[in-house]
Write a protein that binds this DNA or RNA. Sequence first.
DNA 1: TGTTAGCACTCTCGACCGTCGAGTGCTAAT
DNA 2: ATTAGCACTCGACGGTCGAGAGTGCTAACA
Lengths: 341, 341
Amino acid sequence: MAVVMDTRKGRILNAIIEDYIQTAQPVGSRTLEKKYFPSLSSATIRNEMSDLAELGYLLQPHVSAGRVPSHTALRRFAKDLLNGSFEDVKEEQQTRDYLYARRGQTDDLMPAAAQVLSELTSLTAIVMMPGRREQKISRVQLIALNRGQALLVLVTDSGETSQTVIRVTDRLDSDGLYAISKALTEKLSGQTLGDVRKMLDYYRQSGAEGQVLDGIAALAGRIEKQSAGETVVLGGRHNILNYPEYADITKARDFLSVLEENEQMLSVMRKTSNGFSVLIGDEIGVPGTEDCALISTSFGVAGGHRGTVNIIGPARMPYARVLSTMRLVSGILTELMGGNE
Amino acid sequence: MAVVMDTRKGRILNAIIEDYIQTAQPVGSRTLEKKYFPSLSSATIRNEMSDLAELGYLLQPHVSAGRVPSHTALRRFAKDLLNGSFEDVKEEQQTRDYLYARRGQTDDLMPAAAQVLSELTSLTAIVMMPGRREQKISRVQLIALNRGQALLVLVTDSGETSQTVIRVTDRLDSDGLYAISKALTEKLSGQTLGDVRKMLDYYRQSGAEGQVLDGIAALAGRIEKQSAGETVVLGGRHNILNYPEYADITKARDFLSVLEENEQMLSVMRKTSNGFSVLIGDEIGVPGTEDCALISTSFGVAGGHRGTVNIIGPARMPYARVLSTMRLVSGILTELMGGNE
DNA sequence: TGTTAGCACTCTCGACCGTCGAGTGCTAAT
DNA sequence: ATTAGCACTCGACGGTCGAGAGTGCTAACA
């Protein structure tokens, strides 16, 4: 008679998965009897486990070890969680405040997001920000500091800002700087960052505001480099040291080197569209990640692009916590980057 | 007859140290003969090594392994390097540019410095910034962004800036914001950050610029928290995974946890005054760092305080490279933070 | 027909050798 | 003072063995 999945098998499988996620140890029939099913005997549980193994949900590392949930089983488990409702992340308000404080400062925000994700999940987080369409300058402003220095702030039409300190002549007071700011804004606003560089040569011949122009050029270059190209930020790399599956240092090192700017890995993550993608084991398709799970979701960015938020770690990970944390953070990022969910 | 140090012994000791720093393996007399002293026989070298051991410069992990330089020997070696001239760090210009781009943005600069240090040395870097005297506001400026938002920039009298995005009413154009900025600057400049918060309650009753004031309060709080208290930034934590002395994952973990906000560790680093401090092994005096070397130096900050720059790693580290990299970075930090060397 | 006790069987893990090789220390010769 | 030669020491490595954990199967039972 064909073996079929029934409720009790499901409950036993879930118990095995939970225990295994916690302990990283193969779980045996006696453990299950004591911890989860005192009303059943270990022999009965053994029979069910044998059926589950036949169905492909359990593996045994070797004959006299307990059973380990297969990747198939973990997939089932994670997908089930996806359909259910998400629990709230306790640290929600704190997280929101932390990230909102970095609104508009994309180069601060991405690392902060990666850090929050990795801290809340104890795993490794990867945040990818797509290259955005060419940005235009919407405003240039100089702010007086002391000692002949000024802060140059560049605002783009998508609301991102970037700043740097430059030297200016001592003669300029606050009003003078404001006048220059207005003039520069007038000249430059609406120009793309690329155009600005070309224009600068022309102005530079007038000799007047040399340092200011150099500053703008440098800053424009920086924003360009950072917004035209895709940005990839990692957080919590060394969290994996706490997982017994990486007790072997060479494994840990290999894992880390797979992460660092691995084009194959990035292209997998880029594929994520709305909603969650849960890839376990071979599904990831990147050599060296056979024992990993990669959870991805995306966030919206003004202009219709989408960035992605990713968590990677051992296939045995606290999926519930990971999913809800990621939903929280990607939601906040969408809000902050002015995109649509 | 008493054993004394002579030139040949010195040369042999240096060869042992260099080889050991490279390979992390005990070095034997035959290796020395082949790699460094083909004109001597291994037996002669053995005799010298035996003398060096008697002098306390060499240890043998066990009788049939090679010799390992003792901490005393490493100290001698490092101190010698200190007295000699420093080689230039090849990446000097790059490093300088990288850090200068963050001038005035202390919260960006510290992590950047730690990162540069750790990348150039392949070790772990710790940068400490002392709490500074209470700062005063020297300027407040609002810059229009799109969609009823503005960038609020706060400049302190020491030239540090900090910014955040706030909401403002749509009616305000650039000139309006400038007018408000001037008014706010007039009212607030010269006030300490602490005072500002108190004042805000008074203004808030007038109801006029609620969001702006909230923004200032938040920002003032942030700068305060960050400049009043000492800041500690780590870089390159996971570099240690590449060292065989941390091949055991629990050692690596222990090392990392000693680093994280360890008050004992910090107080050792705070003791650094001008010049370099080289602590090896027990000299550090922090449990768990018995096999480490801690190199510290300081940089000047406006107002006469000093921050510190530290590299920590296995006692066997490339001292020459570490020392010159640290001198470069601490020099740049002094320039950027407006302190005196 | 589902559940359970009992038992033989399998496989890993740690402890316990014995061998091998690297490296030393000593002695005697140069 | 230097060196060749040799005995000696100790860790690394590989193999063997017993203990323990956990399974699969069978037979009894509700």
